[in-house]
Write a protein that binds this DNA or RNA. Structure first.
Length: 583
RNA sequence: GCGGGUGUAGCUUAGUGGUAAAGCUCCAGCCUUCCAAGCUGGCUACGAGGGUUCGAUUCCCUUCACCCGCUCCA
């Protein structure tokens, strides 16, 4: 991507963020206190938008399907849950940084190194050292060191108090660094490599031509203190725990530590048997849930995209193991995308990928704004058989909205093991017991809202009545999820009959949809305000409505956000006319 | 977490070691017979905390937030 194109996209993102704030879609959390990194609030329009999106997902799962039921579980669960799921161990990794390249590594992924460690006490600038030597001939301080000029090493002479001597030298010269550093050189490799790396290290700390101070060597075995790539010393390991910790009960003790869930999925697994029992479902079937989740992200970025508190829409769709499913018979008359009893996990996985893409289209994300990424085998998590990411092309990059993972029976098996409770399903048809497998479409609500906002944002250049160019900002939300469905205006505010009639129309529509009444300012201004809010329809009550032309009595104009064209509709048909367009 | 940048009203920008300016938005009123018209009036800001100073929005330090790059992302 070119720099200018990148700048343009960044500018677009800034405008979107600005509009979100100006119109009340998204605010920074705790703004009056200076904000808090990784947390965001939804304003009036944002709250409606988010609610519409979640409601629609929920309806698509539980109302329009027979094979999915809902769950609304608690955020805090028994801590053992997270041991079973693997989160407490894999979510807190000790991390180290390379002192030379600043690259961050996971301690557990470092291959232990064996070789010779070369340690230095610090470095001084070569030019300054010689200058000092010239200006102070015979100085005791200089005499205390032996210069190995071939290697560029200042070695304290035997018998001197090394620490004190080095400190004295440091305080006499300007360009010094007294940070100790070491490099590990594998057995059989050249030792001058260590000095080269050490010099580079001190150069990064501002010493142009470093003379290394002291050089001690030590044989080291199976150490993870050094970067395998370059031998450089690493920082002390630091814990990166992504779980939000809290205490259950008013006393803070080790015994009552609990965690805010990092995903909603585990509650579904933990309640699998109870839901199965009460819902009278048979495999294959799914349990879905919408709810908050919390992750202590190392670095929240990109507006709401990576937040520490966020919301998920997750489905765990339980299926039969392939060998059981294969015994069932398919309906030969069914169309190819209709689920069949003999489908294996691969077919179910592909089915859900396609279902989810279609769903994104139905909320206004076009197929060409999305990307689908099949994770290659080497990237897969240990539990996953296959994972597909659905990504959206955000102005700041193409990023994940949803992951659809085929997780085998990993989760249920883990919970069975950790809880000691059976997670097996008795298959009446096959007359056998087994732990079901699962396909998990897991979507981030806040990411989706951001994608929807980015997708909807339009700047239209239009020529006004005076022939002047101006920009019309319009949020082209799919009517189905638009925060306000219809705005109702009296053409003029200072005609009582128009105002009364407009309020009547508002009340007429209110039971069916989000309505917004506005009578302030010129009619054009009111239209434009609704354009920025993404309201798909504006209804205006004018003198025809009141009967100026008898045959137009009780008709209103309905203005379309995207075309700015108007239809004249009788109030009797208005609610249905509108509803048809956003159902 | 590292490096770089930014922070003045709801938004976009001026500006200054000595009373902080404008445009748009917003609110009220007038006017207005369909796309940000006009007139009158009004609200609202130097991110926070220290320091230097008679006096700091301005200079210094710390901190917070945001943006960019790296890093990280079960």
């Amino acid at each position: 991507m070119s720099e200018s194109n990148k700048a343009k996209l960044n500018e677009r993102m800034e405008k979107i963020v600005s509009l979100c704030k100006r119109r009340g879609f998204i605010f920074q959390s705790s703004e009056i206190y200076g904000g808090i990194n990784g947390f965001w609030d939804y304003g009036p329009l944002g709250a409606e938008l988010k609610r519409n999106v979640k409601d629609f997902w929920w309806r698509c799962m539980t109302v329009y399907r027979d094979d999915v039921v809902g769950l609304d579980a608690s955020i805090i669960m028994h801590p053992r849950t997270w041991e079973a799921s693997g989160h407490t161990s894999t979510f807190s990794d000790p991390m180290v940084d390379c002192l030379l390249t600043r690259k961050r590594l996971r301690l557990d992924q470092i291959d232990p190194q064996t070789g010779t460690a070369y340690s230095y006490l610090g470095a001084v600038d070569r030019d300054l050292f010689f200058e000092f030597q010239e200006q102070n001939p015979g100085s005791k301080l200089i005499e205390a060191f032996e210069l190995h000029s071939d290697d560029g090493i200042l070695k304290p002479r035997p018998g001197t108090d090394t620490a004190q001597t080095v400190e004295n030298l440091m305080s006499s010269l300007d360009l010094t660094c007294n940070t100790a550093y070491s490099v590990l050189i594998p057995d059989g490799e050249r030792s001058d490599q260590a000095r080269k790396i050490a010099r580079k290290y001190y150069q990064l700390r501002g010493i142009t031509r470093p003379l290394l101070i002291d050089e001690q060597t030590e044989h080291v075995e199976n150490s993870t203190r050094y970067n395998p790539e370059n031998g450089s010393l690493l920082t002390e390991p630091r814990e990166f725990n992504l779980m939000f910790k809290t205490y259950v009960g008013p006393v803070e003790s080790e015994d009552n530590i609990a965690y805010l869930r990092p995903e909603t999925a585990q509650a579904i697994f933990a309640q699998f048997k109870t839901v199965l029992e009460v819902s009278r479902q048979k495999l294959p079937f799914g349990i879905c849930q919408i709810g908050k989740a919390f992750r202590n992200e190392i670095n929240p970025r990109n507006f709401t995209f990576r937040s520490r508190e966020f919301e998920q829409m997750e489905l765990e769709f339980f299926i039969k193991p392939d060998e059981i499913a294969a015994k069932s018979e398919a309906d030969s008359n069914a169309s190819p995308d209709t689920p069949q009893p003999n489908w294996g996990w691969k077919q179910w996985h592909e089915y859900w990928v396609e279902e989810r893409i279609r769903w994104y289209e139905s909320v206004g994300l076009t197929r060409d704004s999305l990307d689908v990424y099949w994770q290659p085998a080497e990237e897969l998590a240990h539990y996953a058989q296959a994972t597909v990411d659905i990504l959206y092309k955000f102005p700041f990059g193409t990023q994940e909205l949803e992951g659809i993972a085929a997780r085998g029976n990993f989760d249920l098996t883990q919970h069975q093991e950790f809880s000691g409770k059976s997670m097996e399903y008795f298959d009446e048809e096959a007359k056998t017991r087994y732990v079901p497998h699962v396909i998990e479409p897991s979507a981030g609500v806040d990411r989706l809202i951001l994608a929807i906002i980015c997708q909807a944002y339009r700047e239209e250049e239009i020529i006004n009545e005076k022939g002047k160019k101006e920009i019309r900002n319009v949020m082209q939300f799919h009517p189905r999820i638009a925060p306000i469905k219809v705005a109702v205006f009296p053409l003029l505010k200072n005609r009582r009959e128009l105002v009364m009639k407009a309020k009547e129309v508002r009340d007429l529509l209110r039971p069916y949809m989000q309505v917004f009444y506005d009578d302030a300012g010129a009619i054009g201004r009111r239209y434009r305000r609704q354009d920025e809010a993404g309201t798909p329809f504006c209804v205006t009550i004018d003198f025809e409505t009141l009967g100026e032309t008898p045959e137009l009595l009780d008709t209103v104009t309905v203005r379309d956000r995207d075309t700015m064209k108007q239809d004249r509709i009788h109030t009797r048909e208005l609610a249905e006319f509108l509803q048809k367009r956003f159902r």
